[in-house]
Write a protein that binds this DNA or RNA. Sequence first.
DNA 1: ACCTGAACACCGTTCAAGT
DNA 2: ACCTGAACACCGTTCAAGT
Lengths: 197, 197
Amino acid sequence: MRDEAARPGQRADAHRNRERILEAAAEVVGEDGTQASLRDVARKAGVGLGTLYRHFPTRDALLETLLRTGFDQLTDEAGRLLDADLPRDRALADWLSAFTERAGTFQGLPASLMATLGDPESALHASCLAMREAGGRLLRAAQETGRIRPDVDGTDLFALANALSWIADQAPSIAARRDRLLALLMDGLAHPDAGRA
Amino acid sequence: MRDEAARPGQRADAHRNRERILEAAAEVVGEDGTQASLRDVARKAGVGLGTLYRHFPTRDALLETLLRTGFDQLTDEAGRLLDADLPRDRALADWLSAFTERAGTFQGLPASLMATLGDPESALHASCLAMREAGGRLLRAAQETGRIRPDVDGTDLFALANALSWIADQAPSIAARRDRLLALLMDGLAHPDAGRA
DNA sequence: ACCTGAACACCGTTCAAGT
DNA sequence: ACCTGAACACCGTTCAAGT
């Protein structure tokens, strides 16, 4: 599915190894989370440990390739919601729901996202920042309607969204309450003076 | 300060080692968080690794001794606030503030607290549950005044409090916004029909 | 070019040997 | 009764040796 075309000048075996590593990583990270053993990934890929490091010099580089498609979709989704014929606060709530759902796909992902935001050297930094900015634009649009409190910014929003994703991942009993906690968060974001049903 | 009295029948050197381990643990966990290396703790305590395990058979057993005093204070504080001459939602907000402050003392503590809640075998389980119940009682009292929404329970509250503590720990820039995010959380907890200033 | 796996410096946990 | 540290099975990361 991903990166099917070989890179120009890349040897066929190298390209195949790269694909194998990514497939194995999807499995292992899916089971053990973003802190999964890289040795396990190499083993499952049937590849030497050095080969894994050659293709992905850091853990974040591997995660970035694994996650970029999903991140880009979320960034695009924010743009679509911004242009959609939808109440602005509704659009914001929809995006937060999509974000927390995706951030919950891998255990440990919210922590990785927050860590990466503070580390410009991380391979995940750029796409993570793009997501925060996209969410920030949705937030500001909603604030302009007066239905969302003006004293929060994109950093707050991204932090809260990750906090919600994190807590849902800590216990199944909490995961079942995710939507309700998200609604509670939206109420907290609502402007004090805005009328509520 | 802690456990100064020797236990009956305990050898003097054993008691001294236990104290040394706890002092070292306070330092090391303070620096590296709840996932700190136990080897580091033993080294700093000037004690063999087996001695550490003899006194504290699990990581949670060590953390429990390190944290119990603080946990008990929070549980007691909830009782005091329940009896205080204070608006119920004010009392709840005060307790949440105290909780998040303490949960932020050690990096990784919110995750340990949530994990421990789902593991009855953990040495931290009982005192953690007691804290959640104490917070739950404060919550119900506030709900009875009609100023706090009725569709949340102690589990929600504890989860949200830990989520807030967690996110504040992920970046210094977020830690600086903790009080504002707590206020936002309180707004989310407020009853939709309750008048707000 | 690329791959491999040994090597190094760490973990957590257990347990035989000491006092 | 208690303490010690070697032993075992793991990590992440690097790099000499191979093809």
